[in-house]
Every structure is written in C-alpha cells, then in structure tokens.
C-alpha cells in the first residue's frame, strides 16, 4: 500500500522525508562500508534488491477473491537486516514510482518511512525476540508484522495529513484504517505464511546462502532441510 504521487500536502511530504532520512543515510553508510570491505558484495546487494522488487510484484491470494501483492520487506529483513533494507526498500520504491507509476517522488519519503524503515525494524524486532522459539514462528511474525506495520504507519500518515473534522486524528485513523483493513489484515497473515514457505524452501535448496546471511545456524541446516523434504 503506497501513498500516491501528490497525495500528501507538501509540508507532510517534506516532514516524512526528513523522518526517513537518518535511517536511509545509516543504511547507505552500511552499504558503502560493506562494498568497500568486499567489492563482490555489490553484486549480492543488487541480487537482493532485484529479489525484493520481484517479491513485491508476486501475486498472492487475497480475501476478496482477487489477488494482491506482498510487501516483501519482512523476508528481505530476515535475509539482509534492516539497515540494508532501508536502502534497498527506498531503491525499490523509486523503481516502482518510475517504472510503474506506483507511489511517487513527492511521497517517496513517506513511503520509505513506512515500507523501508518502520516495517523492517518492527519485523526485525519481532524476529529477534522470537527466534529462540523456532525459525517458522519468528519468520511468520517478521513477514506478517512488516506488512501490518507498513499498513499501520501509512494509515497514520494519511490520518495526520487529513484529520477528521469531528473525530480528529484518531477519527481519521479509524476511517483510513477501516477502508483497507478488510483486505490488509488477512493479507498480513498470508504474507507471514508465504514468508515461512519461502524460507523453508530456501533452507532446503540454498542452505549455504542462508548460512552466509546468518539466517540459519549450522545445527539447523540438516533439520530444516529434512523438515522441508517431509
């Protein structure tokens, strides 16, 4: 769920850009450092970014019977960590704006804050907090919460920009929230399930990559591979 071009008043668009900037700059520094230490990692980051874009273009079943798209940031966060996702997510949003007219340039900061900053950090917090309970639970929460957090922050951004005449900001949160909640909450659950399925598949097919990315521990590789096979 992206905010469309020109949808936010200029002051709000600028304020959200300022809010997202420190996180994106922090991510850019992490990327520059990583690339300086290991020039080959540039290619892997390119692969990770392209993967994130394609993930967001996949069709997943939606509650209304039609299909919708995952945000892909939960899986991206589990695989590549939030600072890198802040950069990759912002690049993906820029690409979506310029290739698909989905989102926009004036709303890039606001969309980056919700999808590339808030979603990944909340997902990562949940993932780390629940990692000891098993890979499936933590990955499910990361996928579902990244989606829900993105939707929640977008709702807040819209409510702050267009408060309700009687209900104020809280009333506007209820209005903007309810219009998308019917599809978005089940979609978050579906994205959580999808993320678990993808990670199980990757643990089976590409355990080396997952070990390198720190998602799997060496003790888990055999067990997860067998679980995926059964």
């Amino acid at each position: 769920m992206h905010i469309a071009e020109g949808f936010l008043p200029p002051v709000h668009a600028a304020a959200w850009t300022v809010a997202a900037a420190p996180f994106v700059v922090h991510g850019v520094r992490a990327v520059v450092r990583q690339v300086r230490e290991d020039p080959d990692s540039k290619l892997l980051l390119g692969a990770a970014g392209a993967f994130t874009f394609v993930l967001s273009a996949l069709k997943i079943p939606s509650v209304t019977g039609s299909s919708s798209h995952p945000t892909g940031t939960g899986l991206g966060t589990v695989l590549f960590r939030p600072p890198v996702m802040a950069v990759l997510g912002t690049i993906v949003l820029l690409f979506q704006a310029l290739l698909l007219a989905h989102g926009g340039l004036t709303t890039l900061g606001a969309n980056a804050f919700s999808m590339a900053v808030a979603g990944p950090w909340i997902a990562y917090g949940a993932y780390r907090a629940t990692r000891r309970f098993g890979l499936a639970i933590s990955v499910f929460l990361a996928g579902a919460l990244a989606n829900l957090a993105t939707y929640g922050v977008t709702t807040l951004q819209l409510a702050l920009a267009f408060p309700d005449p009687t209900g104020g900001i809280a009333g506007a949160v209820a209005k903007f929230g309810s219009i998308f909640a019917i599809t978005q909450i089940p979609l978050a659950v579906v994205e959580g399930l999808l993320t678990v399925l993808v990670v199980r598949l990757l643990a089976h097919n590409s355990p080396k990559e997952l070990l390198r990315l720190g998602v799997l521990r060496r003790s888990e590789t055999t067990a997860t591979a067998e679980e995926a096979r059964s």
Binding site: V28, V31, V32, V35, R36, K42, L43, L45, G46, A47, G49, A50, F51, F53, V54, A57, V87, L88, I91, V92, L94, F95
Partner: peptide, 19 residues
C-alpha cells in the same frame, strides 16, 4: 554515493530477467 547508484543499476539489470 556511487556504491548505491551501482547497486541500483545492478538491480535494474537483474530485474527484468527475474520478472
């Protein structure tokens, strides 16, 4: 930074192939 524009250019190169 060039590192970021180069990563973006790589994403662009891989994108259509992956789609």
């Amino acid at each position: 930074p060039p590192a970021v524009t180069e990563v973006a250019a790589l994403i662009y190169r891989l994108l259509f192939l992956l789609l």
